[in-house]
Computed example of a mutant assay.
Amino acid sequence: MGKDAAPKNWPAAIPYLLQPSYAPHITKPQQQIVKTRPIDVVNEIPRDFPRGPSVLARIVPIADPTHPADGQSGLFAARQLPPGSLILPYYGVVHSSLLPHCRAHEKSDYDLWLDRDGALAVDAEKAGNEARFVNDYRGISARPNSEFKECWDSRRGERCMAVFVLPAGKNAGKNAGKKVGAGIGKGEEILVSYGKGFWSKRRDEHQDNGALEDNIP
């Protein structure tokens, strides 16, 4: 972690993480949950996967009035990304999702479940890596071209979330004529679906001022 390690266009006020960070309240049993590989976790970050700023994706400021993230940033492919391939892990602060610890993360747009049974989540709002800049596809594309998946990090011997290109057959891309399962082309924005829960929460928060999400699948 540090300024020199951060990728281009990284916000100076947010620590850049080269590995997950753990909230002080995380207990040893909770740490053991993260260090234990479940049988059903099949996706893996290989030992030789590069650490530090990604060579596969780059942060790009967005200056487009038609883009939902206008004035913010998005994550774009730095090269052709094959279907089903790993793009990068999702780093943030691993924390408990139980009271009272979850209160500090209730309004975060960067909080993902890590283990529901163990009540653990990872939040990249105040510290993270490039994955925190992945935008939702709504208003940008017909459908997402990537997804969040739980995986096993062989480099650290622990569970984490990561961003993967959608496998062949799931990605129709932004244009109707694009070949299904073609992966993500160089220069294309990497887009996921934040899911119904995210947009339902935003709808509830903004129902009084009319800023409703109209495209909840």
Rank of each mutant, 00 (worst) to 15 (best):
G74N: 00
H105Q: 02
S193G: 04
A6M: 10
N175K: 08
P11M: 03
E44L: 12
S54H: 01
A6H: 01
P11Q: 02
A162I: 01
T27R: 11
W10Q: 01
D40H: 15
A127D: 05
L86Q: 00
A104K: 10
A211Y: 04
Y91K: 12
I59E: 00
K170W: 00
K196T: 12
D153Q: 07
A124Q: 05
K28W: 11
A119K: 10
P20F: 06
W152E: 12
V41F: 05
N145W: 07
V122A: 01
H206P: 06
I45Y: 04
G71A: 14
D123V: 10
S108R: 04
Q32K: 14
E147D: 02
P167S: 01
R143M: 12
L166N: 00
Y110K: 05
L81P: 06
F164T: 00
S146R: 01
E158I: 05
Y137H: 07
Q80S: 11
Y91M: 14
P15A: 13
R79E: 14
L81I: 13
G197R: 07
L98H: 05
M1G: 09
R79K: 15
L112G: 00
P144H: 00
A172Y: 03
I184V: 11
I59C: 03
K201A: 14
I87Y: 01
V165L: 00
C102Q: 06
S154Q: 13
N9H: 14
E125N: 12
P7T: 02
D204K: 13
I14T: 15
A5P: 02
S193R: 02
P68N: 07
R202V: 13
N9A: 09
A69P: 03
A168C: 05
N171K: 08
Y194T: 07
I184W: 02
A5M: 14
G185A: 11
